[in-house]
Amino acid sequence: MLIKTRGIVLNYIKYRETSIIARVYTERLGLQTYIVNGVRKAKPPGRIALFQPFTMLDLVAYTARQGGITRLSEFRCSESFSSIPFDMRKSSVVLFLSEVVGRTVLEEEENEPLFNFLHDSILAFDQQQEGFENFALVFLLQLAMYLGFGAETGEEITSQVAFSSSVPGGAGPTGPAALRFREFDKHFDELLRDPASATIPNGRVRRELINVLIRYYQLHIEKLGDIRSLDVLSEVLAESE
């Protein structure tokens, strides 16, 4: 059976000589895995570019009752990016966030609100010319809402992370560490309530906040593991210190 749907590419791996296996979050079927034949051939050129992280596609896909890997009958770009592929800062953010989404959004069923959030957020990020330094933080805070563990205050995040980091039988960080978490509370509160007015001073603090958020995700999602692309993003954020 064939089905038409929009999709957002999360990642792919090489398969045989010229093909790939791509993981795509679709509007109608949730997370799907597809074999895509021939996209790594020299001719026609450029088709593999359609499977870079967060690329948006119109798909005609085969479906199977038992689920599992299927194939694409047709695919084409549905929304062309104007800045993400050409801006290293944005590309690093997209690589990082697509890995997080790929490890946290696993349901093979329709979730229109989540799809719309991903779609609209990515397009807005591509169109932003400035003031997008905090996009990854805001995205992660909002994604947590759709995943069922969103926070209403910064203290909800930092208290859980602090407790998980405390020594057995302890009461959490004290002294300078406690002061640091209170600073994070303030920044997270700003990002939750009015992201456009957030006063995060530099890339070092953004890095620390992202590390806290990833730890928060790890507490709520079993076997999330380490996010490999975080190191790449950290290097980019370091340049804005």
Rank of each mutant, 00 (worst) to 15 (best):
R23M: 04
D58F: 11
F75C: 08
R89Y: 09
N37C: 06
I35F: 11
T104P: 05
M88D: 09
L29I: 06
I69G: 09
A42H: 08
F96P: 00
R28D: 14
R65Q: 15
Q66L: 12
C77K: 12
V101E: 02
F81S: 03
Q66P: 03
R71V: 10
A49S: 15
T33F: 05
I48C: 14
E107T: 07
A22L: 05
E110K: 15
V100H: 00
F81A: 07
G30V: 06
S92L: 02
E107G: 05
L29G: 05
G68V: 12
R47F: 13
I20E: 06
V100M: 00
F75D: 06
K43S: 14
K43I: 11
V101A: 02
E99K: 00
E108I: 01
E74A: 13
T26M: 05
F54V: 12
L59H: 12
R103Q: 04
E74W: 08
S92N: 01
E107H: 12
E112P: 09
L31K: 13
Y25S: 07
V93L: 00
A61E: 09
I84G: 00
T33Y: 07
Q52S: 14
G38I: 10
S98Y: 01
Y34G: 05
L31A: 13
E74R: 15
P85S: 02
P113M: 04
I13G: 02
Q32L: 09
G38T: 11
P53K: 05
F54C: 11
V24F: 06
Y15V: 05
G30Y: 08
K90Q: 01
T26I: 08
K90R: 07
T33D: 10
K43W: 12
R16F: 06
R47W: 10
A61C: 15
E79C: 05
G46V: 13
E17T: 10
E79F: 15
E109L: 05
L10S: 06
R76T: 15
Q66I: 13
L10T: 03
C77N: 13
I8V: 15
R76M: 12
S82T: 13
E109D: 05
I21Y: 03
V100N: 00
Y25A: 07
L29V: 03
Y15F: 15
N111E: 06
V60Y: 10
F51V: 08
L72H: 08
V60C: 10
T104E: 03
C77F: 03
R76H: 14
V100I: 13
G102F: 01
V24W: 04
